[in-house]
Design a protein around this nucleic acid. Sequence first.
DNA 1: TATATTGGTCAACATGGCTGACGTAAAACC
DNA 2: GGTTTTACGTCAGCCATGTTGACCAATATA
Lengths: 166, 166
Amino acid sequence: MADVKPIGKALFLREEELRRGIELMFFAYRDFTGEADSILAEQNMGRAHHRAIYFIGRNPGITVSDLLTILCITKQSLSRVLSGLMQDGYVTQKPGATDRRQRLLYLTETGIALESRLTSLQGRRFAAAYREAGVDAVDGFQRVLRGLLDSDTIDQIAQQDQTSDI
Amino acid sequence: MADVKPIGKALFLREEELRRGIELMFFAYRDFTGEADSILAEQNMGRAHHRAIYFIGRNPGITVSDLLTILCITKQSLSRVLSGLMQDGYVTQKPGATDRRQRLLYLTETGIALESRLTSLQGRRFAAAYREAGVDAVDGFQRVLRGLLDSDTIDQIAQQDQTSDI
DNA sequence: TATATTGGTCAACATGGCTGACGTAAAACC
DNA sequence: GGTTTTACGTCAGCCATGTTGACCAATATA
């Protein structure tokens, strides 16, 4: 401990910085999701419902298997959530035009309303953080987050951007 | 749809940007935790154990109630996790010097080993992302993440930095 | 001494992951 | 046309991790 050399000091700082990142990630994710969680609790839903609603809203007509690859959960888990959402009138499905085995998923009016309520809530939090931090910071934020992704996820996101109908 | 004004276009872009942030946050957190999760699964532990180990390692001698405020869970949930960790020899406790009701928590050798394995794994991911993105991006990343926090959390982190014995 | 604080325990419950097994309809292939 | 594969669903049960509520013990403090 006494004979700390510059390199030791540098490594120490580096570890501190990395830990700061790890912790910020934990706290930010917790706070970022917490607000939506309380709205969901009112409707007797959880975060799993939110994720399904979000990505169906984002990709109307998505197939079950595509939703599964986005969420990385088992079909049994998703099925439970989807059945609930359909029963409660947030989601509908219709058979695929070309492949009639597929069940294309859509939000209902109610589903759209809930999705937009949740997304605008989280969006406001992001907007405030972005505004405070400034444009350059936002760019850095997104670059680092992308750097944290698995390569599979990067491919997946790239693919999604291609097929997106924007 | 036909008479979209500049303001409409701007809002559209803004919403796209916000959604990109929301999604990046989801995917990055998932991938960032996923790697550690698989190590934990080997030891029959989950993310809850990881969080406890991490913050005990970070604050040796932390009291149960301080750990509770960091984690924001009930004492029953924490108690279950802590009992397991103590039984399996990752954590020890000793009574507080001034207040003997307190049980100060410490990692054992085994606990330290596991913590450092997990943290260095996540640290490597962060280090790679930081290296790729560059110093300015890292600063922006941290600024935006801090902007996403609840004000309570900000206070809490500030307080922790003060009492930290660095 | 009376009260508040720190921490633990037991019981019961919900959510949301998981595995495994099995079924059905439709597409794709030989 | 018959077989295989794919897309999806269901039932059953398990585990981790969160929750409430009730209750208890030791200790600090006013």
